[in-house]
Amino acid sequence: MAKNTVSKAYDRVKLARQNGRPTGVDYIENIITDFIELHGDRNYADDEAIVGGIGYLDGKPVTVVAIEKGRNSKERVAHNFGAPHPEGYRKALRLMKQAEKFRRPVICLVDTSGAYCGIGAEERGQGQAIAQCIVEMMALKTPSVSILIGEGGSGGALALAVADRVWMLENAVYSAISPEGCASILWKDSSKAEEAAESLKLTASDALALGVIEEIIPEQELGKESFYEKLRVKLSREFRELTSMDVDQLVQHRFERFRNLGVPDMGGKK
């Protein structure tokens, strides 16, 4: 690490990005049984940066949507390093609306440095695709849990994290901008990423303190059978609670959850 600064936040950024860290499909393989992958957005293409489908969580059908980075270099190229195009978000939305129709709970696994920045992505409406995901997730009439398992990069991550419960892995990060991007914009020096990481308050404990997430998932047993087992039990329990709620009330709570984030002092009454 550069100079004398030891940045705890940036250590987590590095861990969150580390190759070998479990990716979306690892979670699906270890938590979900009989998973059937469903492809395509029915408009343009199948974006492999997002893996989605239906499977069983403790014997109950659930829809899972995961941003997938890939586990080796070949997979990483195929999954575009977990940077979705608009068609990826539209596929995710299609599967979530399908889940709503059949009253299946939705699990989103978020791990992306951000939505893909490219010519085709812009031509096909990256901004509009993300906006639509946000709006529709906000109003989805079925329970949802989003788990940030690695990188939570900006709008491309939020697009799949407008859920009833948002959890973060202990070393996952969640930020409006990458520390490198922040440093180069603010200080014209991307080597100040460590300082930026600290200032951005992007760790799981920051997100918890700011009310952005409900829980932190410990990583001591990350990738081990016991890790997945605990997470499976936790998800099951959460969905039992969420499905017992009246669906309109559920949506109302979700709306209020996000409505109350970052309410500044507006100087008295509304």
Binding site: I134, M138, L158, Y174, A176, S199, F258, L261
Partner: peptide, 24 residues
Amino acid sequence: GGARMQEGILSLMQMAKTSGAVKR
């Protein structure tokens, strides 16, 4: 130009907050 990075993750959350209000 996008999110106000000096307000970190809470600036990102404004995308969800405003979208919720638009939806209602």
